[in-house]
Design a protein around this nucleic acid. Sequence first.
DNA 1: TGCGGCTGCGCAAACGTTTGCGCCATCAGC
DNA 2: GCTGATGGCGCAAACGTTTGCGCAGCCGCA
Lengths: 366, 366
Amino acid sequence: MPNTKARPRKMTEVARLAGVSLSTVSRALAGHSRISEQTRQRVREVAQNLGYQLDVSASNLRTGVTRTIAVVIPLSHATRQRLSDPFFLEMLGALADELTARGYGMLLRKVTQPPADWLSSLIRARRVDGVIVIGQSLHHDELDKAARAELPLVVWGSRLEGQHYVTVGSDNEAGALAATSHLIEQGCRRIVFLGDSEVPEVQARLRGYLAALESARIARGPGLELPVRFGSGASYERISALLHSQVPFDGVFACSDVIAMSAMRALSERGRRIPSDVAVVGFDDIPLAAFTTPPLSTVRQDHATGARSLVEKLLQIISGRRPESEVIPIELVVRASSLRHHHARADTDRRRRSRVSRASNAAVPR
Amino acid sequence: MPNTKARPRKMTEVARLAGVSLSTVSRALAGHSRISEQTRQRVREVAQNLGYQLDVSASNLRTGVTRTIAVVIPLSHATRQRLSDPFFLEMLGALADELTARGYGMLLRKVTQPPADWLSSLIRARRVDGVIVIGQSLHHDELDKAARAELPLVVWGSRLEGQHYVTVGSDNEAGALAATSHLIEQGCRRIVFLGDSEVPEVQARLRGYLAALESARIARGPGLELPVRFGSGASYERISALLHSQVPFDGVFACSDVIAMSAMRALSERGRRIPSDVAVVGFDDIPLAAFTTPPLSTVRQDHATGARSLVEKLLQIISGRRPESEVIPIELVVRASSLRHHHARADTDRRRRSRVSRASNAAVPR
DNA sequence: TGCGGCTGCGCAAACGTTTGCGCCATCAGC
DNA sequence: GCTGATGGCGCAAACGTTTGCGCAGCCGCA
């Protein structure tokens, strides 16, 4: 029965009880060098009975390795934004699973104002072995500088021209293209784009949106591209204002499900029916998206493989290799919020790297 | 300009350049002992220029203190549940703010199967100074054992009879009482309760629910208390089944907003109108609750003060004191999903420790 | 001048591991 | 029986801080 309350045991105690030297204990527990199976067993047993736990501080000091990764969530420094988008949570959960599976701890950090160089200070303080940044947000320059300084760093986000850091990210352009094409196929001609186009990820989505319009020979509508920050309720007001302004539109492509949901609220409050008057598609496929009324069509980000790839690449960087950035394919999930006609065949929309699936619960509303 | 790429500097280097001894540097940077203001300045300056960062591993080893707190999220070990409820994210964000404000790091951990004693091993390995557990879930015994072993531990959850660990939690009973009373006041007589009553928090909410029924002399309806786990889509199926079974009901009190939202989906799919046919109240007030259609009435948990209190109490425990458990007051937020009559005066419902407010965006649907 | 107290700083011993090196057996080959 | 190789383990030096103690100066007071 492992000891819990008393003072922590040290290796010397284990050594004494096992009748071997301290270094043998270290090697036996690490499974490292040439120790006979017999003594290894005995040492393990004694350690177990004593409730011995390796002191990670001492171990870190000696080895120079912390087996801890920092995960930082940069919030746009403009607004003191709350951490509220469920997408982050999904990503965090996936990262936590991936890291613990590989024996790493996860130090979570939320940053708003980058204090000159929180990135390098985390590493130089030997607090963590590497850093994963979720969302490049507006910190591109900072990240690039850090990567040039050889800091072990990977970023969830879009690949930009000439960047020095490694990114893993969804195929935002293809996702937006698929979503917008789908809306066009459903008969939409004036499609609102909701997203903050200063953020690189959103820029990519805007490109996909515009590409879809172009390939359908639809003109880019003035006043249809609305800047909306992630996570805020601003899209509600934007859409309300748009409705008030009498600018006509029949479709909405939102850069996150949260944005889409608040847009839907504004629409239904003003008496617009979804999808018959206005069809809506979101982005992320947060768990709640399947449970809105009507259920929300959306572009699913595969955070599980995203997280795995992030962690893999970071560990590669730590071990001295130079992995490539990666783009994760993305999947359009069609639900009722964008499905106008029973005969609409969503699965003809298979193009680019994106796959399209009709969700199982995509029942057409009454 | 702080050095970034090169090998980390050590204190001896700072000492040499500042023309003082190593111990003076340590004291000067810590602002500790009696060092003249002049040398303190010079040392700080040299350290700054050199881009010196204290090696936390070494510091931890010497002082025995990590200035890191583990935040663990126990997921019910029954289902390998995903981390998806936005409430967690709100809580995490608040905790992150509170901890970083006090100079602590936050080690995030997700546990499913408690491997005998992950709690004590975290501490004994000197990985963290203390542990915050979000949601006692089903781990009550484990937590109690850990607390009896004098581990620095606080838990977000309900206070139970004779427990040894310190909890901070919402006034679940009062919240449920307010929510249910509100539904009754809106004319509901057969109110469904959705929640997994094995979890202590939910048990408290069930008590509040029953108390409200009793004080209105409404009999506890058979088949109206439905077990639904947090975070799953099961409530959708439960409600669907209930509707199918012809058991009549006119109100729903759900133990989380996520559960409420999936219940609303089931209702509207089956043609029930909200709130006229069935009024719905949730729990948590996640940001999305204001943007469902109709906007969701809910019981707001104050995670900001909750987080502050959790951190304060944990630091007190670490410094050897014995704080009391605390119950955080809760607020009923009335929105359209439960507001049936224009004349209904929600604010007559002021009772117990809970406050009631009519939300600003509680407009009655057309 | 002598003495005690105070200020400002350096010496060196910890903190608990990991690991290069070296030592003692044992064993095979001649 | 001697030599060289090899397996199994111990010695002791790191890793980079923090901190008790001690030691110089200096000032004030007698």
